[in-house]
């Protein structure tokens, strides 16, 4: 009778494996960030760069289809060949590997800012405001929680890099001919591989940073130091003070860019004043192992406490 009054009844279904909890954690994390206006403002800023490429490609095709020697462009008469040359040679809006790599490179600034926000919201808040026990009280472990968060971060990164790159790929194919899709399969593979490597690495790095530094401002200080300060330091050391190009290895975004270039079939080792691909991959691997080791230690600590 007492049990009836409490409306208690046993669960009659069967639990899935805890691995099934990864996606709900990720989905909840995505929803937490998507409902913030600031995220959409940042995403809008990131889209500016994508739109530059998008309309640039469109203008390239517009110029290439002109039969006149000069075209009227915004009321100004411009030589058609100059316009085509500007888009193809200078801005590299020619749907080659370089164009996609440029897009990934320029998106880097806003990706880092969005990830700083995501780190503070997704992980920092959970730990600071005590939401973590709610997750861990469910039939899942801290490992699944971290996987879920990693997955969410990967989605953010891909939303800002891989997805726009794929849009450009499709756009170029539709503007030129369907042969582009078949002939440039390696580029499609390269974009996907670069996106996967980029997002996995950044997810690991961000998660480790956010677990170590939970408050927003210190998290941002650490994150910007890793990805802005070291970039500038590498630039200062290699480009201004003429140190060995290996010093560029401290610029993690550049390292990821080189790996991405390799994914798209470019010969990275022939690039001027850049470290070799092997060195780059070693650095990324070392940082990933460090992050993973740190996270595993933290997970164990959580399990001991709970």
């Amino acid at each position: 009778m007492a049990v009836q009054l409490l409306h208690y009844r046993p669960w009659r279904g069967q639990f899935h494996s805890p691995a099934w909890s990864v996606w709900p954690v990720a989905r909840l994390s995505l929803a937490m960030v998507f409902r913030r206006k600031l995220f959409w403002v940042l995403y809008g800023l990131a889209l500016f760069i994508f739109l530059l490429f998008f309309f640039g490609q469109y203008l390239l095709f517009f110029a290439e289809t002109q039969t006149e020697a000069r075209v009227n462009f915004g009321g100004v008469s411009v030589p058609t060949r100059s316009l085509i040359s500007l888009f193809r040679q200078v801005l590299k809006l020619n749907a080659t590997a370089q164009m996609y790599l440029n897009l990934f490179w320029y998106q880097g600034y806003m990706v880092m800012v969005v990830l700083a926000l995501a780190g503070a919201v997704l992980v920092g808040n959970d730990i600071r405001f005590g939401s973590l026990p709610f997750y861990l009280s469910k039939p899942m472990s801290a490992r699944h929680y971290l996987f879920g968060k990693c997955l969410a971060i990967m989605v953010f990164v891909n939303l800002m890099t891989t997805l726009p790159a794929l849009c450009l790929f499709v756009q170029y194919g539709l503007l030129s001919s369907y042969d582009y899709f078949t002939e440039s399969g390696h580029l499609l593979g390269g974009i996907l591989a670069y996106g996967l490597i980029l997002s996995s690495f950044l997810a690991l790095a961000l998660l480790s940073t956010a677990v170590a530094v939970r408050r927003t401002v210190p998290l941002i200080m650490t994150w910007t130091t890793l990805f802005f300060f070291f970039r500038r330091l590498a630039e200062a050391l290699v480009d201004r003070l003429y140190y060995d190009p290996r010093w560029r290895l401290i610029d993690l975004w550049n390292d990821l860019y080189l790996v991405g270039s390799a994914c798209m079939g470019m010969d990275v080792d022939s690039l001027q004043r850049q470290p070799t691909l092997t060195e780059t991959m070693l650095v990324l691997l070392a940082v990933s192992v460090l992050c993973l080791t740190y996270l595993i230690r933290r997970i164990r600590a959580v399990e001991v406490v709970s």
């Binding site: 600031l38 600034y109 800012v113 941002i220």
Partner: peptide
Amino acid sequence: FRRPAIVAIVYSFFLEV
């Protein structure tokens, strides 16, 4: 702003540049 540090880095490292 509720996330002033984020807005500030957008300003410092994006808009200022």
